[in-house]
């Protein structure tokens, strides 16, 4: 397994949208290396013949009827936690990127 670098941690922080400080990055680089070393053992037992398990209790075909329910919120409820709103919409500051 590759060593984890500070650049990598900074990249991960960017992917995870956390503005880590330099100090945090340095600290996490060390810690992450230790943790990954401790958990790497999963590779040794995870041989190709073992299927992965994503759900502990296997189920399939769980569907909802196509019917509107009383889970629908009023705009007042929907916006009740908004840090900033303009009428019935949420406000965010300018977007650096582009249309997705």
């Amino acid at each position: 397994m590759p060593e984890i670098s500070a650049e990598q941690v900074a990249h991960l922080a960017n992917l995870a949208r956390i503005a880590l400080t330099e100090e945090e990055i340095a600290h996490l680089t060390t810690e992450l290396g230790q943790i990954m070393q401790a958990v790497e053992q999963v590779n040794q037992v995870a041989t190709p013949d073992v299927p992965p398990t994503s759900h502990p209790i296997p189920m399939q075909n769980v569907f909802r009827a196509d019917v509107v329910t009383d889970d629908v919120l009023s705009p007042e409820q929907a916006l009740s936690g908004a840090p900033e709103r303009d009428g019935d919409r949420f406000v965010v500051s300018a977007i650096l990127g582009e249309e997705q």
């Binding site: 995870a16 949208r17 956390i18 503005a19 965010v92 500051s93 300018a94 977007i95 650096l96």
Partner: peptide
């Protein structure tokens, strides 16, 4: 101030 990306990152930090 900041872009929404920076606001999100600062809030989560």
């Amino acid at each position: 101030g900041g872009t929404v990306e920076q606001v999100m990152a600062a809030s989560r930090e």
